[in-house]
C-alpha cells in the first residue's frame, strides 16, 4: 500500500499535488516516488462521520487525506493509498486520478 508523490530529480524535494516547476530549485524534471506512510498532524470529523486528516509525509509535504478503516489521531502513522482498498486496517486515502481510473469513494 502506497501513494504516488512527485519528486524533483534535481533537488530531491517531494511535492503533492504535482507541480510544473520545482518551487525550490526551478527545474522541471520529476519522477514519482511511492510513499508508504505519513504521520497524522490534525483530524476533523464531518457531520456525516467522515474523518479527514492532515498528514505529514516524512521529509515531504503535508497532504490531506481521508482516514478509512477506523479512527486515527494526531501522532499516528498511517499507511497511504491512492485507492480505496478493501484491505482491512486503518489507512489514509489520498485521491490522485493520475494513479487511478474511475475510482470513487
Amino acid at each position: 500500500m502506497s501513494a504516488a508523490i512527485q519528486k524533483c530529480l534535481s533537488c530531491g524535494n517531494l511535492f503533492f499535488p504535482a507541480r510544473l516547476f520545482c518551487p525550490e530549485c526551478g527545474r522541471e524534471n520529476f519522477s514519482t516516488e511511492l510513499v508508504e506512510h505519513a504521520d497524522v498532524a490534525e483530524t476533523t470529523r464531518l457531520a456525516d462521520g467522515t474523518l479527514l486528516a492532515t498528514l505529514r509525509i516524512p521529509g515531504g509535504p503535508s497532504v490531506v487525506g481521508r482516514v478509512t478503516g477506523g479512527p486515527a489521531s494526531s501522532g499516528d502513522r498511517l499507511p497511504l493509498a491512492n485507492n480505496l482498498s478493501t484491505t482491512r486496517g486503518v489507512y489514509a486515502y489520498l485521491p490522485d486520478p493520475s494513479q487511478t481510473s474511475g475510482q470513487q469513494p
Binding site: F16, P17, A41, E42, T43, T44, L46, T50, L52, A53, T54, V64, G65, R66, Y93, L94, P95, D96, P97, S98, Q103, Q104, P105
Partner: peptide, 24 residues
C-alpha cells in the same frame, strides 16, 4: 487540485481545511 485531490475524498468546500487550520 480540488477536483483531483479534495473533492474525491469527499470534501464539499473548505470547511474541513479551515477546521484543521483552526486546530493548529
Amino acid at each position: 487540485a480540488t477536483e483531483d485531490h479534495l473533492a474525491p475524498l469527499p470534501m464539499n468546500g473548505p470547511n474541513a481545511l479551515f477546521a484543521m487550520l483552526t486546530t493548529r
